[in-house]
Amino acid sequence: MSRLELIDENIRTIPEYVPGRSIEDTAKKYDLDPASIIKLGSNENPLGPSPKAVEAILENAGKVHLYPSADAGELVESLSRYLSLPVSNICAAGPGMDGLLDNLMRLIIQEGDEVILPIPTFSYYEIAARANGASVICVERKEDFSVDIDAIRKAVSSRTKVIFLCSPNNPSGNMVAESDVRMLLESFRGLVFVDEAYVEFAEHSVTNLVMEYDNLVVGRTFSKIFGLAGLRLGYGVMPAWLKKEYMKTATPFNVSLPALKAGVAAITDKQHIEKSIAMVREGRKYLQEQIPFKVYDSTANFVLVDVSPRSASEVCESLLKKGIIVRDCRSFRGAGNSLIRVTVGTQEQNTRVVEAFRSA
């Protein structure tokens, strides 16, 4: 028996997650000064973290020899105030929202179960589900990337456990209507997972529906609006019955002490939140109007660009040579070969991106 046979066959066939390029790798490959490179491929906050979050990390740096609270209770209480929801409906998670997904799949999925993905969308849903034995049923989105609710409902079978919705969707940036979410919740016996990683940049959230429906889970993150991607901090909003079961299998102490303290501080920094939102909305409009290719409407902190008849790889390569990292979307199942995702940056960064697209 080869060593590889020790690994479950279902896992061996999972496509690898493709992250955005790093500044270090780009500088090395293209012989560029790292300081000259702008990274707009991973939807990070170009303003950085809240100064209050940084202060909280520094204040608690000398305490990292101690375990944090097992359930991140202090952070959950802060999130309760931030969301105006009971603590009984909120779970903190690390690393990032990915940790929430991993634990939910471990809790819910059994061998032979199915999950439904409207594609293209965030690829980690598939990885987390298949790693726990699920089969993935892909449903194509409409031409404008809106979710085809009728097609999703037709794809549901007796084995379907979870329907994944990303709102705003990654990589297209469009929302799922609340009426569509309600329709699925009312017609489906399993869980509906709504990923709201980018919702602070959008118009509305469905977290309030957790108080109405007992089969909704909403995933959130501190990686985007709060600028804490490097701390890997997320959380979930879910029915109280599910939180009780979720905590039984959650990894103890899964939120580190620095992440916990930074998260609590970041939530209170309304000035940083408002500044980040204003920057994104202004920059998003600028990119939509100035990039010389088709740019889809977005409610997130990025825009999706269709560079056809050219290829995404060709245009991305041209931008990389100019020191600009964007996201080639070919790794997103069902995205085709001509889509590029561009994170909204500062005005100076956005200007460089537009100039680079014009000369690509």
Results as ranks from 00 to 15, higher is better:
residue 104 L to H: 08
residue 101 L to Q: 10
residue 128 A to S: 03
residue 88 S to N: 14
residue 92 A to L: 05
residue 75 L to D: 13
residue 69 S to Q: 11
residue 72 A to N: 11
residue 74 E to Q: 15
residue 112 G to C: 07
residue 112 G to R: 10
residue 86 P to V: 08
residue 68 P to W: 15
residue 129 A to W: 09
residue 116 I to Y: 01
residue 72 A to C: 12
residue 98 D to M: 01
residue 101 L to C: 11
residue 114 E to H: 06
residue 117 L to W: 00
residue 123 S to I: 11
residue 99 G to V: 00
residue 131 A to H: 04
residue 132 N to V: 00
residue 118 P to R: 09
residue 130 R to I: 00
residue 69 S to P: 07
residue 110 Q to G: 12
residue 78 S to A: 15
residue 76 V to D: 07
residue 108 I to R: 04
residue 114 E to M: 01
residue 129 A to Q: 03
residue 126 E to Q: 10
residue 108 I to H: 00
residue 92 A to R: 01
residue 73 G to A: 10
residue 86 P to E: 06
residue 102 D to Y: 04
residue 86 P to W: 10
residue 131 A to T: 06
residue 130 R to W: 03
residue 120 P to R: 06
residue 103 N to P: 02
residue 82 Y to N: 15
residue 108 I to W: 01
residue 127 I to S: 06
residue 97 M to Q: 13
residue 105 M to Y: 04
residue 97 M to P: 14
residue 94 G to H: 10
residue 107 L to A: 08
residue 126 E to P: 00
residue 124 Y to T: 07
residue 114 E to I: 09
residue 107 L to N: 05
residue 70 A to I: 15
residue 80 S to D: 02
residue 85 L to W: 14
residue 122 F to V: 03
residue 112 G to T: 01
residue 122 F to K: 06
residue 90 I to S: 01
residue 102 D to C: 02
residue 69 S to V: 06
